[in-house]
Amino acid sequence: MKKIFLVLIITGCAFGVQAQQSATPATDIVKADLKNTLANLDYTDLFMPKIAVSDAQKPAANKIFANYMAARKALWLSTRKNPAVYDQQQPALFNTFKTNLSAVLSTEQMNAFMATKPARGDKKNYLTGLFY
């Protein structure tokens, strides 16, 4: 009898969770999953395709990239209508990112990475969104 009650309670919970999921707006679902996807993205592969990054370095490096991207996006969103403020504050964010990355990558790797910095305003180069 106890078992039946337990099964009923678990089934009820499962339906409750399902109902909650279906009630979640689609916008929130796609946003949350994008956050997840980006958190698990191999940024070293995306931003440093020609630089060998070891498997041991990747988790820490990717976390630093992800944190920087989140901070950069927050700054971008808060300054969308005032790009001058963004230009003023972004270098400090980037310097923190660079310092953190230097602690994970070797000097050679860092130099190679910094050498990929595109010219300011080069919209065709996706690294522009990383360095500026």
Binding site: A26, A71, Y126, G129
Partner: peptide, 18 residues
């Protein structure tokens, strides 16, 4: 497939649109 998504500034710290 669930939805097509257009998320301006959604990727690369706001520098790329999805």
């Amino acid at each position: 497939f669930y939805r097509f998504v257009y998320f301006p500034g959604g990727v690369n710290g706001g520098s790329l649109d999805l």
